[in-house]
Design a protein around this nucleic acid. Sequence first.
RNA 1: CGGGGUGUGGCUCAGCUGGUAGAGUGCUGCGUUCGGGACGCAGAGGUCGUGGGUUCGAGUCCCGCCACCCCGACCA
Length: 481
Amino acid sequence: MADTITPREEDYSQWYIDLVRSAKLADYSDVRGCMVIRPNGYAIWEKMQAALDGMFKATGHVNAYFPLFIPESYIQKEADHIEGFAPECAVVTHGGGEELAEKLYVRPTSETVIWASYKKWIQSYRDLPLLINQWANVVRWEMRTRLFLRTSEFLWQEGHTAHATPEEAQEEVLRMINVYKTFAEEYMAMPVLIGRKTESEKFAGADETWCIEAMMQDKKALQAGTSHNLGQNFAKAFDCQFQSKKGTLEYVWATSWGVSTRLIGALIMAHSDDKGLVLPPKLASRQVVIVPILRGDKQAVAEKAHALADELNSNGIHAFVDDSEQNSPGWKFAEYELQGIPVRLEIGPRDISSNICIAARRDTGEKQQIALDDTFAASISALLDAIQQSMFKSALEFREANTWEVSSYDDFKKSIDKGFLIAHWDGTGETEAKIKEETKATIRLIPEDPDFRKKYSMDEPGICICSGNPSKGKVVFAKAY
RNA sequence: CGGGGUGUGGCUCAGCUGGUAGAGUGCUGCGUUCGGGACGCAGAGGUCGUGGGUUCGAGUCCCGCCACCCCGACCA
């Protein structure tokens, strides 16, 4: 037997760790809180990068790269920013054997170093908008880490844009949070709620933070992406002004937005099961594994398997054959299920003689016969599409089945482990903090999707579940990662 | 930072009242197998986290240190 995975029912947290390690997605490193992303895990990140990068370019953004090291004086320029990030920064004090005149912060995020450049690049309204994205690693010295979900160093992308008007900036904030939503739903097959963060949950240095929130299989919430409206905060901190068409000097309006390797954790916790990883076909670098049953005329079986793989690959489906004789077919079935390959094809002598093969889908485990005629590639392609759709559908059904409206605080406290709770809130930070203190639930977001708001009649005024004060509308509470 | 746990072949771990290190799995070779984690035979592989101490003798007992993991408070 290979590694065994703790069942989700028994210990969800241990299941997650067991899965990450036995599917060879990541390993712990010898440095606290850091992980090695193994090829199986990195392949998922590469697929994510490719899809997102295409979407960023399609919305007019370009890539650039800014330095890892940030002078201490930069970090200190924006008051909320330093307050939010300084405690969790790694700081370089020595270089080349000598103490540095100014400490260098290993970037926890790049607003400051980027705005130092933007100040030099922006003089006129003609220089705007400036739409730049960077793929990079960042370091945050978190107190408690968890593979993919929160590591000391992680990979991400961060978009940083500069605009001439607040309206344009806000449009950008919404455009990008919607790009994330599209990516989460169409590629990750993971439904998300879109909305705003409360004052206490927003990004350090932002006027407003938008986010997408997903529900994991243990019914906890995970923030999967954020898009911030930075107002003129960083422009003022870095004295970045431009001359408008009218000739006046004005501060630039800014946004920033990012998603990280945390998405891999989200993907795992949204779909995978006790047998291992379950990957949506669009994010699987290997979509189909062909396992030949090598008996009888072994060579003929192996050749047929390779011919099928070739046919799939030439139709844009990523297929490969495992014809090694070291491991039995049973071993291969289990191994590729662990690795989350969406479709497995079995082909043996008796299939060849009846001109079929057996297809097993990873998400449901269902097996079906596929005809080996000129409809073959189209059948597999349709099967992959069906898997992608059905994964999204079941995740959505799961979220909907675990979203509840509650109207009393007693009910709220009793229901908090049951998923997303929709309840009235008086809008104050005090109440928010009290609820968090007493129930560990936080306000995940103030949803903006009109259909969602309507479904739960979120715009109707009411009474705050905790304070009993008037509430202008409902928000979504949950325990979160 | 508080609480808990663990450091012994690549991995997971066993090792009792101290006597000079073992299993499963993985790995290498050969052969038989192969439609749900097959089997036989033969091999390779360990300064027992680290520094001291007790002892004729320490993986085991004592003291210190280090590291990592898990559960909480903080965060993407």
